[in-house]
């Protein structure tokens, strides 16, 4: 189809004004920081993430064992469970963990535990993140079956594997025969997490560390940390 399109005179005026809008400069240092963060993406990011996760789950999961199954996180189902919990309508198959009437466990920054659920061998901890959508941390026993996840999302850095879907805000990683799936991450949260840098409301690595500690306490996993 040709480009010929009759525009009215006023449209040309509006178009001309818009066409003269100036370039917008990013804040000083923003792009340099973006570039500087690249090595973090390329190297120590997931290494740090892996270490944090291992530090938690080596101690917390304690459900290791060579006979653990390979797990392919059911991403759609987890996303649905996350959405339901975020909307205040948790999956009926999930049972809220009794907190014995105590207050929600607060995490550093703006992250605050809202609820912990479990179903069979899957646990879900939901965290409010201020104005942003909540984040769910799912954990289930078994190592990740990486080959069954879409290849384009795989990251293998310094021996630590992770799977990332930045569009959906999903991160999957493995720690000591447990599969951890984080759902509901905003782009900035995911970026912070991948870069290992603290976010405005507290580092996600810290949040995950505490989240899994919460799971350990709530679900009775051995906490050797």
């Amino acid at each position: 189809m040709s480009e010929v399109f009759e525009e009215e005179a006023w449209e040309a005026d509006i178009s001309a004004m818009l066409g003269q809008l100036p370039a917008v400069e990013p804040p000083p240092g923003f792009l340099a920081n973006a570039v500087d963060r690249r090595p973090l993406f390329a190297g120590r990011t997931l290494a740090g993430l892996g270490l944090a996760a291992v530090a938690v789950f080596v101690a917390a999961a304690g459900m290791g064992g060579l006979d653990q199954p390979h797990v392919v996180p059911e991403l759609d189902a987890l996303a649905a469970r996350h959405s339901s919990a975020a909307a205040g309508v948790p999956d009926p198959d999930f049972e809220a963990v009794d907190r014995a009437g105590g207050p929600p466990i607060s995490l550093p920054g703006n992250f605050e535990a809202e609820a912990v659920f479990e179903a069979e061998e899957l646990s879900q901890s939901v965290y409010a993140t201020g104005d942003d959508d909540p984040v769910s941390v799912f954990s289930q026993p078994g190592s990740v079956d990486w080959e069954k996840l879409p290849a384009e999302g795989l990251e293998v850095l310094e021996g630590n594997k992770a799977w990332v879907d930045s569009d959906a805000g999903v991160l999957v990683f493995e720690a000591d025969d447990s599969t951890v799936t984080v759902v509901g991450l905003s782009s900035s949260e995911l970026s912070d997490l991948l870069s290992g840098l603290p976010g405005a409301g507290g580092g996600l690595v810290d949040v995950l560390r505490d989240a899994t500690a919460v799971l350990s306490a709530e679900l009775g996993f051995p906490n050797l940390g």
Binding site: P27, E152, V164, S186, S187, S188, S191
Partner: peptide, 22 residues
Amino acid sequence: RLAGNHHDAQDLVQEVLLRVRR
């Protein structure tokens, strides 16, 4: 121009750079 403010623009650029990298 799309997001309308610097805060959202920075978030958007971060998201874009993630997608570009991938």
